[in-house]
Design a binder for these strands. Structure first.
Length: 123
DNA sequence: TCCATGACGAGAT
DNA sequence: GATCTCGCCATGG
């Protein structure tokens, strides 16, 4: 993140990328969250795309980011294609007890971990 | 510096 | 209710 073009209404501190990584790491094992939920939590409600785009670079981030716990609003593993063959997104999820059928998380609504709710957003 | 792109979401048709 | 279109804005070329 060479440039920090922080704008009003968006991120107010740190890099957007860092914030995204931070929130994703907070997702408990066995739970999943959505790009939109993260976006809203960061104050960029309509910037869900950026969350996904940032995830593109998450592979080189340390500590590792549990990107497999992030799916789209339908509970679909849209980013599975970005995972290495030795650690498929679905495999990682099922290893945590999350059942995936046809690239879709079962019981999605129950497993959904919304930072706005779980972290008791109060700002 | 400007342009195109993208692991999305919500409203419109 | 299924599909299409547009908006959003950080990254990379």
């Amino acid at each position: 993140m060479a440039r920090k073009q922080v704008r009003e209404g968006a991120v107010q501190e740190r890099d957007f990328f860092q914030d995204v990584m931070d929130v994703v790491r907070l997702v408990p094992k066995g739970r999943v969250t959505t790009y939109g939920a993260i976006a809203r939590y960061l104050g960029a409600a309509r910037s869900a795309r950026i969350i996904g785009y940032c995830m593109n670079s998450s592979h080189a981030v340390r500590p590792p980011v549990p990107a497999h716990r992030v799916v789209n609003r339908n509970g679909v593993l849209t980013g599975k294609h970005h995972f290495p063959d030795n650690a498929p997104m679905q495999k990682l999820l099922e290893a945590e007890g999350v059942h995936v059928v046809k690239d879709q998380v079962e019981r999605f609504h129950e497993l959904l971990w919304d930072p706005m709710v779980e972290l008791d957003f109060q700002e």
